[in-house]
Amino acid sequence: MSIPRAFRVDFGEMFPHGCYMVGEVEQVKDFEASTASKPVWARDKDTGDFVWQVTVVDCDPEAREKMVKIKVSSAVQPVPPAPLQGLPFIPVEFDGLTVTPWLNGQRIAYSVRARDMRAPRAGASVSKPAASAKDAA
């Protein structure tokens, strides 16, 4: 049996209530190769593209972790969607999401990666969770 290292996940499954970008898009350092005087920027092992990090707030009221860091692989810095008037944060969606579990001491943590970042599709900025069988009855 072959188990993938990273599991693909749909944006709507991971963020059923949507998410908002906070802060800036930041380039990720390769901490093993960097020195104090000369930073070396991390590259995606599969594509060779630079790795960028975006911090988002999960809008799910029941989410355990509200802040999620998503790494985006791209040859150039990803451009966030335009801010919407009256909102303090930028609504954003990601394509090509993968989740890689790893052991962080005694607990399981997750590394989240994406292929692309974009504005939410019209009418989809806040997705509604699928109805359960209990709700349908």
Rank of each mutant, 00 (worst) to 15 (best):
K66W: 02
Y20L: 15
A114R: 06
A133L: 13
P129H: 06
Q85R: 10
F94N: 08
Q85I: 06
E24F: 05
G12H: 11
K38F: 03
P129Q: 03
A75V: 03
V25T: 04
V40C: 04
G18N: 06
I108T: 07
Y110Q: 14
A42S: 12
V126Q: 13
V28A: 06
R64S: 04
W102F: 15
A42G: 10
D95P: 00
V76P: 03
K38M: 10
P101V: 04
R5S: 03
K29M: 09
P16Q: 08
G105W: 02
A137P: 10
W52R: 01
S34K: 05
G48W: 09
C59R: 15
R107D: 11
A136W: 08
S111A: 13
S74M: 02
R115Y: 08
E32I: 08
A109F: 01
R8N: 14
Y20N: 13
S132A: 04
R115T: 14
S73E: 00
D49M: 09
M1R: 07
T47K: 05
V25H: 07
E62W: 13
L103F: 08
P78H: 00
V68C: 11
Q85W: 04
F31K: 15
P80Y: 05
V68R: 12
A82H: 01
S127D: 12
Q53L: 11
Y20V: 12
D44E: 10
A82Q: 09
S34W: 06
K69S: 13
D60M: 01
V25K: 10
D49S: 14
R115M: 12
A109Y: 02
A131C: 05
